[in-house]
């Protein structure tokens, strides 16, 4: 039985697509057959982050409309065994995502895969609602700043009432928090909310904290999911997050200011 995971946030630009790419790659690396689906119809980005933009022939909307079958549209990742990307359509809008169409595609994917990762668009309109509607579990991506936290709170409310799970009377789907672009230095200076602050406001379990890192930008530019950059702090933080997602108990890292060079030693910070 495949598990459908939605990666969502409400606010744009917080790292949903980066996270979808990293988590799906991590799940595949752990040996689970994984498909990552871009729900951001009209603003397709996942293909770039996954580095498959030159291999897009058919897309999600083509499959919904029956112009292509799923096998034709799925792009096999060349680096990680068992990882596939279903790109969004760039020329259509989110109204092309019908409930029946999305359900049909997800059902078909569920026969082939262990995990289906749905990369939600920003906002709380149709695309985001469709990405979340069939999910069994949610990863809520949040930046440590007030507007992002409020939007995530809104999304958590929607997950509690507007998913199939909730409509069948089974309550909210489990949602976990992934805090991205975290900078302990700025938290110390009072410029950023701390993990504790965010967790207290949102009252959900913490899946992971991804430090602000140049590696994320480098990975996006290179079209390589950042989790594959094993030497980077962000890559390692995503690996921890995937391990926790799969039930492993790992301590949170990168939460405190790292001692750095001469100044760190001199001032004992």
């Amino acid at each position: 039985m495949a598990k459908i995971v939605v990666v969502t946030s409400g606010k744009g630009g917080v790292g949903k697509t980066t996270t979808s790419a990293a988590i799906s790659t991590g799940l595949a690396q752990a040996g689970h057959r994984t498909a990552v689906v871009d729900f951001d119809v009209g603003l397709r980005n996942l293909d770039l982050i996954m580095g498959v933009e030159r291999r897009v022939v058919y897309d999600f909307v083509n499959v919904i409309n029956g112009d292509a079958n799923l096998k034709q549209a799925l792009i096999k990742d060349k680096r990680v065994e068992g990882l596939y990307v279903l790109p969004a359509s760039q020329t259509r809008d989110k109204d092309a995502l019908t409930t029946e169409g999305v359900e049909k595609v997800l059902n078909e994917l569920a026969e082939e895969f262990d995990y289906i990762v749905c990369d939600s668009p920003a906002g709380i309109e149709r695309g985001a609602l469709m990405a979340a509607y069939f999910a069994d579990e949610a990863i809520v991506v949040t930046n440590p700043e007030v507007s992002s936290v409020r939007d995530s709170d809104r999304i958590l409310g929607i997950l509690a009432s507007k998913t199939r799970h909730a409509e069948q009377g089974k309550g909210s789907i489990p949602g976990r928090l992934l805090l991205t672009r975290y900078s302990p230095e700025r938290v110390v200076k009072g410029e950023m909310l701390s993990v504790e602050d965010v967790q207290e406001i949102l009252a959900v379990d913490l899946l992971g904290v991804i430090p602000e890192s140049q590696a994320v930008l480098n990975a996006s530019n290179a079209g390589t999911p950042v989790i594959m950059d094993e030497n980077s702090d962000a890559g390692q933080a995503y690996q921890d997050a995937v391990a926790r997602f799969l039930g492993e108990d790992r301590e949170h890292r990168f939460l405190t200011v790292q001692k750095k060079g001469l100044f760190g030693r001199l001032f004992g910070s």
Binding site: L129, M130, Y133, G157, S161, K162, R164, E167, G171
Partner: peptide, 12 residues
């Protein structure tokens, strides 16, 4: 309370 409050434009 099932936490379901307003008419909505959700899929269902």
């Amino acid at each position: 309370h099932p936490l379901e409050f307003r008419p909505m434009s959700a899929p269902a």
